[in-house]
């Protein structure tokens, strides 16, 4: 890889130019380079985003627009809380791009199936955008989204736009509120209504690991080949450059060999407890 930043290189300064509250604890922040930009990010890759004095965390890109990056962050730890609380004008440090990208289908016109659980939709958003742009003539992707409650669903405006652009978006929640009139249940129950042709389908899954395992098995059961199922995995990451050892999953370093891997790579590894 040429132009890859060296390990231990300091972050590059980016300025927060917009912030959107997605749910009660999740926000998207739009970042633009203060001066120099990092090399271009691809959907599925991640950045290490640094909040001054607090630390950095791996965040997938949830939007790519030239040098403008969007990250969708849920406030759960010290760094993510700091980033979640960022307001336009504030500066963060960004390192990257790191890791593998979602691999678009090899064959044009292949059916694209996207299955997202919770905040797993964030890294899939730029993939859906690319797919819609690339497959205008065909049917558009099937996007299945599961969330805990209706209030935890986000990217509502994007989802509407995707539908208009030809995507079949199905949404389900675990716990409906009285106003919810949509589907209730786990995201895998939507698979039978995805209207994809399994032998021609490439699938992209992201969400909690248990959901990924269940969804991947269900997708395989319907006839999608394991090497055409792409999943994004998570583990601790400190360096992003393949040196700190934290993100090891068996033979893989997920910051380098992942986070996106195929189900044929992941299935056996995820079946070993505490690997």
């Amino acid at each position: 890889m040429t132009g890859a930043p060296p390990a231990a290189a300091p972050p590059v300064r980016y300025r927060v130019t917009a912030r959107t509250a997605e749910t009660a604890d999740t926000a998207s922040i739009v970042l633009e380079p203060v001066t120099d930009a990092l090399p271009p990010f691809a959907p599925g890759q991640f950045a290490m985003v640094y909040a001054f004095g607090v630390g950095d965390i791996p965040l997938s890109v949830s939007g790519i627009d030239g040098h403008r990056l969007t990250h969708t962050v849920r406030a759960v730890g010290a760094v993510s809380r700091a980033l979640h609380g960022m307001r336009p004008g504030e500066t963060v440090g960004v390192r990257g791009p790191f890791g593998t990208a979602w691999r678009l289908p090899d064959t044009p016109g292949a059916d694209v199936l996207v299955v997202a659980g919770g905040i797993g939709l964030a890294p899939l958003r730029p993939l859906v955008e690319r797919t819609l742009a690339a497959h205008r003539r065909t049917g558009g992707p099937a996007v299945l989204v599961g969330a805990r409650t209706p209030a935890d669903l986000f990217f509502a405006a994007d989802v509407e736009r995707w539908r208009t652009a030809g995507a079949r978006v199905l949404t389900t929640v675990d716990r409906p509120d009285p106003q919810w009139y949509g589907e209730v249940g786990v995201v895998t129950t939507l698979l039978d209504r995805a209207a994809v042709d399994p032998p021609r389908t490439t699938a992209y899954l992201c969400g909690p690991e248990v959901m990924i395992r269940a969804a991947a098995r269900a997708v395989v059961h319907r006839g999608v080949a394991p090497d055409r199922i792409h999943v994004s995995l998570e583990r601790t990451m400190h360096c992003g450059t393949g040196h700190c050892g934290h993100c090891q999953l068996g033979p893989l370093l997920l910051c380098r060999d992942g986070p996106v891997v195929t189900w044929s790579q992941a299935e056996q590894l995820l079946s070993v407890r505490e690997l």
């Binding site: 890889m1 890859a4 930043p5 231990a8 290189a9 393949g242 380098r256």
Partner: peptide, 12 residues
């Protein structure tokens, strides 16, 4: 190999 053999070499 570990620290300088990958895409991101540890310069120090």
């Amino acid at each position: 190999r570990v620290l300088t053999g990958g895409p991101h070499a540890d310069g120090r």
